[in-house]
């Protein structure tokens, strides 16, 4: 996927948003995507924290890529990532203690988020700093986008509000199960289905085009 020839800064950024979206297309980083998305604002906070850690560690890994011996690279990446996660954890605790309490251990668990280690290993360790920056920002934004989307769907269905703003009148009966754990699995399952449907439709259109047929 990202093993091919690198594109420009913009191309490396855009690919993470939809086409190689870490959650919906690559199915990485699923634990936080499900655990903290019971409201849109929690999804946003988690996404931004992961974006910051991903950017910091990708820059560091890319800058040090010639200095890190291949045998100990994974442990080195983990230590770099753990350092940035510690920084993010304390920063969030200082500026938004309420959100920090809601997300609980899941900020610390960014350390074992496979997106971050995956990007360090697959991209940042092989590309110069500017491209690694674009890749990290793109993947981080794609992750944030996915988390906000899942969070928004669950919040609208489960609490009848979005970003804390009530949407419906008093007659709305919240679908409580959607903000509970099962709702996370069901919403992500439905969204994955939707993404697969779009991918299939696009592929069929491309095949029709390749056969030289016009629009149906």
């Amino acid at each position: 996927m990202s093993g091919g020839a690198p594109g420009g800064f913009g191309a490396e950024y855009v690919k993470g948003l939809v086409r190689e979206n870490p959650v919906f297309v690559q199915a990485l980083g699923l634990c936080p995507a499900l655990a903290v998305t019971n409201s849109a604002i929690n999804g946003l906070a988690m996404g931004v924290a992961a974006l910051a850690v991903l950017t910091g560690s990708s820059l560091m890994v890319s800058a040090l890529r010639r200095a890190i011996p291949a045998q100990v690279r994974i442990s080195t990446y983990i230590v770099i990532i753990a350092t940035f996660v510690t920084v993010a954890d304390f920063t969030l605790q200082a500026i938004a203690p309420d959100v920090h309490r809601e997300l609980g251990a899941f900020i610390a668990l960014i350390v074992v988020n496979c997106i971050i280690l995956g990007r360090a290993e697959a991209f940042a360790s092989r590309h110069p700093v500017p491209l690694a920056l674009a890749d990290a920002l793109g993947m981080g934004s794609g992750f944030t986008l996915a988390l906000v989307l899942i969070g928004a769907v669950r919040e609208v269905l489960g609490s009848g509000s979005i970003f804390g703003q009530p949407l419906f009148g008093a007659g709305f009966e919240p679908w409580v199960v959607m903000i509970l754990p099962p709702g996370g699995f069901l919403v992500v399952g439905a969204l994955l289905l939707l993404f697969a449907r779009f991918a299939e439709a696009r592929q069929r259109a491309a095949e029709r085009l390749a056969r030289g047929e016009g629009a149906p």
Partner: peptide, 21 residues
């Protein structure tokens, strides 16, 4: 065909999770 793989695993996990509640 569309449901095969991850999407169905998620829906199954949702039902399992419901049972564990």
């Amino acid at each position: 065909a569309l449901l095969r793989g991850t999407a169905m695993s998620f829906l199954v996990a949702g039902v399992l999770s419901l049972a564990f509640m």
